[in-house]
């Protein structure tokens, strides 16, 4: 080490490049280590899903019986269906509503807007269990008029409550980046305001809408505490089901199988998408970022 330091001083430039090389290798090691850290639990779940034994600490033999078994686990299947149903509806509605709410908020004067944007942060930042309990109390007030309200409806409402803010927060910065003359130009050409909104503004903020949608889905699909308090009538999602089962009984390894399938399908989907995009490229050669993937 001492030697190296001396040479570094003498022949600065050459040693700088070797240092650079070491730095680059170290960087790669670091990236791999961090990604491994992010994925280690996913990898372990995958291992558990192909383990023939239900024992979580001993690997006996590779087997795909738990995958074949998913369809037979009725309670699990029901929970999975419910999860997808709620997340799909909530994500689409949140994206749609959130976008227009964001445009509405953007049209407000700056002072008023700041106030509402502060309130908009509360659902994101509040503790889940508190949000869930508060929402249950509020929805209960509606029961006077609609006695059978608890279930899919309240669950979707609750998910909208904490997903819309994410969409608004992703869309708002993009709205600020759009050229204010864009709308005026369109309207000068005789386009009605709402038509201009859809034809001109929405395409310009597509990237924000898309990342908002991604975040909304991520938050919605794995929510437990808020869903727990706001569901009803037997409409349990996967998180609620998993929580209930681990308390007193054993989770069927089919849950691991489902989780692994979800990850694999998404990964394969992403790679296919990337492949198709590459095929389509060729003509288009501009900078590829958020705005491209949404197009």
């Amino acid at each position: 080490m001492e030697n190296q330091k001396a040479t570094l001083k003498d022949y600065g430039y050459r040693d700088f490049t070797t240092l650079n090389k070491i730095y680059k290798i170290l960087k790669k090691v670091f990236v791999v280590a961090i990604v491994l850290g992010l994925y280690i639990s996913i990898i372990v779940i995958a291992i558990q899903s192909i383990n023939e034994s239900r024992n979580l600490s001993i690997f006996t033999r590779v087997s795909f019986q738990w995958y074949a078994n998913i369809l037979q686990e009725e309670e699990l299947m029901q929970a999975i269906r419910n999860t997808f149903l709620v997340s799909a509806i909530a994500t689409v509605l949140a994206t749609f509503l959130g976008t227009f709410f964001a445009i509405g908020l953007y049209a407000l004067s700056k002072k008023v807007r700041v106030l509402w944007m502060l309130l908009n942060n509360v659902p994101i930042l509040n503790a889940d269990i508190v949000t869930g309990f508060s929402l249950m109390l509020m929805f209960r007030l509606l029961m006077v008029v609609f006695p059978n309200i608890f279930g899919l409806f309240t669950l979707v409402m609750a998910h909208l409550f904490f997903t819309i803010p994410y969409v608004i927060l992703s869309v708002m910065p993009k709205l600020k980046e759009t050229d204010p003359n864009l709308m005026d130009a369109a309207m000068d050409l005789g386009v009605r305001p709402y038509k201009a909104l859809i034809k001109v503004v929405i395409p310009a903020i597509k990237a924000g809408i898309f990342s908002g949608m991604l975040l909304a889905l991520t938050m919605s699909i794995d929510d437990f505490a808020i869903s727990y308090f706001t569901t009803g009538a037997g409409f349990d999602n996967l998180s609620i089901w998993i929580y209930a089962v681990i308390g007193r009984r054993n989770l069927t390894p089919s849950v691991y199988a489902f989780s692994t399938l979800l990850t694999i399908f998404t990964l394969v989907g992403l790679l296919t998408y990337q492949f198709l995009q590459k095929q389509k490229k060729g003509k288009k050669n501009e900078k590829n970022n958020f705005s491209d993937i949404a197009s």
């Binding site: 309670e75 569901t231 009803g232 009538a233 037997g234 409409f235 349990d236 609620i240 089901w241 929580y243 209930a244 089962v245 681990i246 308390g247 007193r248």
Partner: peptide, 8 residues
């Protein structure tokens, strides 16, 4: 039969 579950 419609089943809801809880753990306590």
């Amino acid at each position: 039969l419609i089943i809801s579950v809880a753990d306590s």
